[in-house]
Design a protein around this nucleic acid. Sequence first.
DNA 1: AGCACGCCGACT
DNA 2: GTCGGCGTGCTC
Length: 703
Amino acid sequence: MSSENGHPEEEPQQAEQLALIRELVRKADVPRAKPRTWRGAPLAAELPVARVLVDKGPVHLDRLWDYAVPAELDADAQPGTRVRVRFGAGARNVHQGRREGGGLLDGFIVERVAESDYQGPLAAIAQVLSPEPVLGPQLLRLCRAVADRYAGSLADVLQLAVPPRHARIEAEPSPALLPPPAAPQPGSWSRYPTGPGFLDALARGGSPRAVWTALPGEHWAMELARAAAATLASRRGVLIVVPDGRSAARVDAALGELLGPGRHVLLTADTGPEERYRRWLAVNRGAVRAVVGTRAAMFAPVRDLGLLAIWDDGDGSHAEPHAPQPHAREVLLLRAAHQKAAFLLGGFSCTVEAAQLVRTGWARPLAADRERIRAVAPLVRTVGDGELARDEAARAARLPSLAWRVAREGLERGPVLVQVPRRGYVPRLACDRCREPARCADCAGPLEAHDADGALHCGWCGRRQDGWHCAECGGTRLRARVVGARRTAEELGRAFPAVPVRTSGRDQVLDTVPDTPALVVSTPGAEPVAEGGYAAALLLDGWALLSLPDLRAGEEALRRWLGAAALVRGQEAGGQVVIVAEPTLRPVQALVRWDPAGHAVRELSERAELGFPPVSRMASVSGPADAVAELLAAAELPSEAELLGPVPVTSRGAAPGEERVLVRVRPGLGGELAAALKTAQAVRLARGAGPVVRLRMDPPDIG
DNA sequence: AGCACGCCGACT
DNA sequence: GTCGGCGTGCTC
């Protein structure tokens, strides 16, 4: 396939690059030393050198250290085991018999080799914590690839990938592996023209890759379970990553229904640390071959991986908040490439990244015919600003009369969902006339007005913009308006006093609601499933979502609307959706036509024109101004790298005087960019540890 | 990060 | 003459 995107196909070239850098970082040609006897203690007869990754500590220790393997630890000190080693200046003194010193640090044996290229005497491994090989070769390779991709340290990634140890759990035997199940019937996969073929390929041991646009009302958890069962039938393993515990529980239930007990495990944060480690060990030991879980499960060491699946990749929960902040979709893509496994990315909506996988030909679309979509999608109706202005009832009650009518009708037939915005968004500027986001004339970054004088500055390159006018329509006035709608929902509840009002939100999320008339007020993402589908839905958060301070505002709005609208009965069953948003806006049109993939394709081509991610690759470098400048000057960036900024960092937690620079490269150079920044960072830290500079690949918050 | 070694000022 | 300031540099 082409190398036009930043996806797994750039990986071999990247690996080569990094191998080269590792080589350079290592000392120049020195004669290879055999491990010397340490205090005269006998060494392991074979492969007496252990290459150890020290688990914690500063970034410049992110390399392997050679230790001698004493004969008595030979059997236990295998690759992948957790060990303790003496590390620090004092360790040598121990060797010379002077006094104790050098702290004990935890680490992992990465490999056993015959000789070391370190010239001095090797210290011995102090202790093998347990003979359990928790860091197998494939997991190690994955973690290294993730660290490289995100310009992070291997130690940081291992912290995400290998759970903390519980000795008692390790002592327990894992259950025996059950024989593979029979291949499942295609079931509702038959509603997609290529669905049965996809399932069949999985069952036969093939590795199809698909971007699946789920039909409205789809019992997607069962579809994922069927794909898992087909893969297990081919004697291969499965990993399914979903955004939250609620979704994980649904897939868990579907897997249980289809496979019976003992063939899969659920890995989520709700499970206590010990039980979690028990399940993780069962997976690592090959006793269980199917895993469903939330983002931390993206590293689950499933054996013989046949299928990697992710549901709703646009959900922000898939982005790991801990360094180096890998995204579950990208990690699964790396795994699919490494292991030649099948890949299934599904959702009611479609991200630009997913559209890019299809565009480059890496994955095939898996979607239903238009006719079938029309039959099962609810009828979507819009209320734009013009209508709102003319609508007397709306002005009085802050709710358009169409919404009243649809709610009243819906409540005669079942529950009605009301989606209201969450608090705490930051509006950005848009053209008052056509709502196109206001963009910088120089680099197309988002404009901000954070000065009291009202002057406009670019959020990326920091340049002042005078005399702004809209590139789309020529308008010269800006707006930052948002609609507060929570109160509207409360008023709606008062207007239907006979009907119960249930709420689902951040603090208390309802899982399901019964099939009886009720107003169900929910924030995006917390919508309960209605047993027979909602009779209607009101989407009242149009402007709040569209003015999120994000490049993805449109995509995110559409994703949330589709997530709610997919819970509504089809229009043949009378299901209706009313959205309070301008009908000319692209995401609104995509909702009306129920065409998320088309929306993502258009967003993608627009990003390509503007040089936005994921069509370009970006890194953000932030910290004290001089430190940022110093790092960038030292980094051997790809020659055509484009520097945007610096701009002052205004986010929470940033010290005054901090700045941020964005580095942009064309697709395919992301690996090179990450490697260059990581090397420069390591060099900086190795000498003198100046003020901290934060690196972030693919920053999500670039406006 | 720790913790060494190392090369210049005021104290018994 | 020594004790000790914390400025570079290494840690398998």
